[in-house]
Design a protein around this nucleic acid. Sequence first.
DNA 1: TCATAATCGTACCGTATGGTACGGTACGAT
DNA 2: ATCGTACCGTACCATACGGTACGATTATGA
Lengths: 209, 209
Amino acid sequence: MEQHTSTRAQQTRERIRAAARRLFLRQGYLATSMDAILAEASISSKETLYRHYTNKEELFADVLRHLTLQRPDFSERLTTLPAPHDLPSLRHALTQIAREILALMSQPDYLALVRMIIAEAPRFPDLGALFFETVPLTGISIITALLRQAREQDIIADVDFDVVARLLLGGLLSYAIPNLVSAEKQLRAAPPDRADALVDMLMRALTPR
Amino acid sequence: MEQHTSTRAQQTRERIRAAARRLFLRQGYLATSMDAILAEASISSKETLYRHYTNKEELFADVLRHLTLQRPDFSERLTTLPAPHDLPSLRHALTQIAREILALMSQPDYLALVRMIIAEAPRFPDLGALFFETVPLTGISIITALLRQAREQDIIADVDFDVVARLLLGGLLSYAIPNLVSAEKQLRAAPPDRADALVDMLMRALTPR
DNA sequence: TCATAATCGTACCGTATGGTACGGTACGAT
DNA sequence: ATCGTACCGTACCATACGGTACGATTATGA
């Protein structure tokens, strides 16, 4: 056997990372001790942990890098949307996107990730920049691409697409942000019709006059 | 002398709170030690500190409560705006508001406050709720009030004002949020013309057709 | 089978933390 | 002058933390 997809060492490393991810997301960096990570990973020796990660910082950075780079999986579902051919289809596509983003931003895991990134940004500035330069930028570019397609078919007026994208994304944010400071138990679920209302209002600005 | 506006004890208490505010905003709750607060406040005995605040938690809560309740001072400047009498004056008023809010959200102190509230929300859920139920709600109500005035004079169409307010506020957010994870030194100053662009786009949605 | 790497247990170190104890000193009001 | 309150200095405590040391034990791969 030469081609082992996962050696024992790799398995332990991933157990550690998974345990650390859970605790870091729940409690933050400082409040999570290495001993607690040990217990959560069902590992019984510190030596084992420090064989895989020389530092607490390194472990944290690894966890966060994995989280941000594996995160934008929803973008695949959105980039394959068919090009809009008239106003109703554009509205439909935008609504689809808005609902998807709102659903993503309402997930407890996503909220916990954002909260932790913001919380530890002073300690790990690079990781915060990495996150905010990948995830939200993806959303903006998806929306602007859709609008550009619509513009090329003369469906909508010639407006600043970036501004429109920020209005939509920001409007969705205004529903999700309060959940950043709420306990996980009592999330105020922003109903999908809020996304529809935002899109409807934006359509008024997009239609030529 | 009976009517002392500030006794010696009150002065010390405020010195402590000011020092704690600086350190908490800069480093967060866990990373700020009581000894560090002592030094920052130029106080030389722990006994003095614990005479004013029985807990670290109590001190933190006091700092945050003061910060959130003293914060919305900009609202006074905005609620006294003259009622709009036509479309240009409405655009002007909205631009004014948008610029003011953008400027507020770009202040390092404000960013640090928001970051800290988000970071410590799991530990202090009440304080987070207090902040997000006062400050942003104030912004929304100011905008909706302005729009209602404009609607009563038939300047704008009959649309959902809350949605419009969230679009504007959220659009501004999209420029400010990345600064939550940037070092204080390299804040990407969102230029005021971004606020103008957002308002211009919204005006397209507001005008009757 | 054998050598090597990974894991285990456990003990340990230095440092920092939140909070307490206590005797002494400066101050402010009556 | 005096009395209570606030402040000072310093020492202390129990606990927790990140990280290291090291011998014993187990699994893995050739």
